[in-house]
Design a protein around this nucleic acid. Structure first.
Lengths: 260, 260
DNA sequence: ATAATATTATCATTATATGATAAATTGTTA
DNA sequence: TAACAATTTATCATATAATGATAATATTAT
């Protein structure tokens, strides 16, 4: 264990379920002596990436709140997409939650969400939460973009090493690719149905998706056309906006450089 | 430069204004050769603390969104305080923005905010943004809690090294301490007036404040009593709730340990 | 007050980071 | 498409910092 990995491993011990840890626990998890962990933790406390809680426990620190704000203000996907989620929710024919998600390692992370006030259920998708890559329309609209090789790696990692299963999964994905959208029922949350479209920008390395999630009980087949119409028009809008941000940023950088 | 500081310094080069940087720029800022910076940046990209953007620029990475979520779910101040901000806003006699803030180094960071729909102005206080420690009611209600020695250090750091100025500042603070609340006009944003109370929990090391911010043009002296009544009842409520969380967490930990 | 736990300090040893340079890759321009 | 420039990765000897066992304090609980 060396370099940044050492720090990252400690941070990744913290989770929604286990949000505070003692040095003894960290030491045990990482199989590193307590004296070493104390030194490392102290460094991170100084930088406010960790803070001490009651009873010799430690928590994640406030620095994350600070950096999270900067990301929200600078991430092109969030900047371009978040403002449209509310509009999308308002135009959908039935109550919905609407989500922007992107690839995060071999998981999918929601980076923006808007739940319409009339949508009473809760989805598992929440900003910052990691979700499985192989289930749900939100995720499918993302993996349909990645290369075959990478997909294969991920399928192996996720335990889909049975060749037949793999083939079936890839075939289904290819069909979705041709159609240009994804639709899944109850793959992530029971009682919910999801529709998703890809959002991408090669230059910015964005592999994302825009999705609308509904209660199955609200949903009727006749809703589908307007759901697709909404999703596809907003997906296009967001892609264009991302591109605009890209152009603007480039211009800004050029301008900045010329001023030297 | 060594240990976590090396990574932290790079992360802290990113700001709202300068949200993407090239390796050359980082190298220049930190006075570290590009070959070294490339190695460090690569490590951080792997951990998703940094991500590559277009045109050889780098941005903060998505890991912050993930960790920010965990903090929001686990920070006792946010957990205890955030739900009450909306209620406070609704009960205030005039349109307001309501803020929970805490100490962050020698700055003050807003960790939760709720702007009432009728409040049209914008405050500088936004979740995750660092604000000066010496101006505004929000900040005063925090520094009035810290030890004299620490305050002195901060006053020196902030350039208040003139003894007379210092004395005046401390006297004003002492008066606020006696009154038990802070009120400032236009110290941070012109046209706004702020009222704040301290929130603290020694065991959890929380030094924070709850504040309501109004438009000066909306404000009349007769509003003051109800403003104070609201603030003080919610501040008390939040402190009690923090304590409840503390007790619950302790019980949880004990329970967890006994199960081994 | 005493015991138990948590935290910091010390220091010889080991392992890793560093940075100069070269090589490779990628992007740009003619 | 070739030639060029910029970006990124690889290499490696050397300097530097991390490690962890142990001892010394500090803090907390009994």
């Amino acid at each position: 264990m060396s370099g940044f990995e050492r720090y990252n491993k400690i941070l990744n011990l913290f989770s929604e379920q286990r949000n505070s840890l003692t040095v003894a626990e960290i030491s045990q998890e990482l199989k590193v002596p307590a004296s070493t962990v104390y030194r490392i933790v102290r460094e991170m406390v100084l930088a406010e990436f960790i803070e001490s809680a009651a009873g010799s426990y430690f928590r994640l620190g406030q620095a994350f709140i600070k950096f999270n704000r900067i990301i929200n203000l600078s991430d092109p996907l969030i900047q371009a997409g978040e403002p449209f989620l509310k509009k999308l929710a308002n135009e959908n024919p039935i109550p919905s939650t609407n989500i922007l998600a992107r690839l995060f390692g071999n998981k999918v992370m929601c980076v923006a969400d808007f739940k319409h006030s009339t949508f009473k259920n809760n989805t598992s998708y929440q900003k910052g939460r990691l979700m499985p890559l192989l289930y749900g329309a939100t995720s499918r609209a993302i993996i349909m973009q990645i290369t075959e090789k990478r997909l294969n790696n991920i399928l192996n990692l996720e335990g889909l090493n049975n060749d037949l299963q793999k083939e079936i999964f890839i075939k289904g994905l290819d069909q979705d690719k041709k159609k240009g959208f994804c639709k899944t029922e109850a793959q992530v949350d029971i009682g919910l149905i999801g529709f998703a479209l890809s959002i991408s920008n090669k230059k910015l390395g964005i592999e994302a998706s825009l999705s609308s999630i509904f209660n199955i009980s609200d949903f009727r087949p006749e809703h589908e056309p307007s759901i697709y119409a909404n999703l596809s028009s907003y997906a296009l809008l967001i892609e264009r906006y991302i591109n605009k941000i890209f152009i603007d940023t480039e211009a800004y950088h050029n301008n900045y450089l010329n001023k030297d």
